[in-house]
């Protein structure tokens, strides 16, 4: 690396690496990514392009589409933030303590991954409906979860939890205890150790988890549809609008909304990646 840097100061496409096989693996990676991700997305954008830029803009600024996009992205962000807090707590408990049933609890975390989302939605709706277990407890206080925007939040927290736990947990397990002990011997209180030492080390992992949970939540359809109530301007998510356009055989309109969602998601993920880079650099990981 250092020799190469000395010999070739300008940027070169193929950086000589001690690992052989760059050409082959790079080719594979590119082909695979193209087949699985880039080409389908390109088709989507191509379909939407039938409307032209101003057509897409018109779709994007329809009050109903705007309201649905707001519902989708804001609720997904809130759910991801909730998972950032409680997911870290769960990861902490699972990696730091040993107690009977830990393995079982560990496995339970993955269930939202495995469950068909429609099943999750039906289960949550049954639970939070005014006549459900939780819903009936809240009903006397006039709190309604199912069939309101709060229902969407509950569903998105449910499907997003494993993303945060599974990204934070391994980092937490690898964290050297010595670092915390060193912090303690230098006179830091436990709160200070967590705040100043542990959390900064976890930050990149938490951000990754939040990004994954957020991205997953934005596109979620199956579970939300059963618990949201789907009222226009209130609890209607953008993916539902896409489905509605499809039902009207309006493929271009559907692709337009999808492209807008894609653009916003991509921008949000880029922003999160940038944040991550910053937090890495602060720690000297870069």
């Amino acid at each position: 690396m250092s020799v190469a840097a000395l010999v070739a100061p300008r940027a070169v496409f193929v950086k000589p690496s001690p690992l052989p096989g760059f050409g082959l693996t790079f080719g594979f990676a590119l082909t695979y990514l193209s087949l699985i991700v880039l080409i389908p997305l390109a088709v989507l954008v191509w379909r939407a392009s039938g409307l032209g830029l101003d057509g897409i803009w018109r779709v994007a600024t329809e009050p109903r589409v705007l309201a649905a996009l707001r519902t989708s992205f804001v609720t997904a962000a809130l759910a991801a933030l909730a998972n950032a807090v409680f997911g870290v707590v769960v990861a902490w408990v699972l990696s730091r303590y040993s107690f009977p049933g830990r393995r079982l609890l560990d496995a339970v975390v993955d269930l939202p991954f495995a469950l068909p989302t429609a099943v999750a939605g039906i289960a949550l709706a049954a639970l939070y409906a005014p006549n459900g277990w939780i819903g009936s407890l809240l009903a006397p206080f006039d709190i309604r979860i199912a069939y309101t925007p709060a229902g969407i939040f509950v569903a998105l927290v449910f499907i997003g939890l494993p993303f945060v736990v599974r990204t934070v947990q391994p980092v937490l397990e690898d964290l050297d205890r010595e670092v915390e002990e060193a912090s303690a011997t230098l006179g830091a209180s436990r709160g200070q150790t967590v705040r100043r030492v542990v959390l900064p080390l976890l930050a990149p992992a938490i951000l990754t988890g939040v990004a994954l949970a957020f991205a997953r939540a934005v596109g979620e359809y199956g579970s939300v549809i059963f618990i949201a109530g789907n009222m226009p301007f209130r609890s209607e998510i953008a993916p539902l609008l896409i489905v509605m356009r499809l039902e009207e055989f309006d493929y271009t309109g559907a692709s337009a909304i999808a492209t807008i969602m894609l653009a916003i998601s991509f921008a949000s993920l880029l922003a999160i990646n940038a944040l991550q880079a910053v937090s890495r650099r602060r720690l000297g990981h870069a």
Partner: peptide, 17 residues
């Protein structure tokens, strides 16, 4: 109060929820 996406879904919301 709720717009389900299909007839069976609405029946469920009415009868079971």
């Amino acid at each position: 109060p709720v717009l389900d996406s299909g007839a069976r879904g609405t029946t469920t919301t009415f009868a079971q929820r």
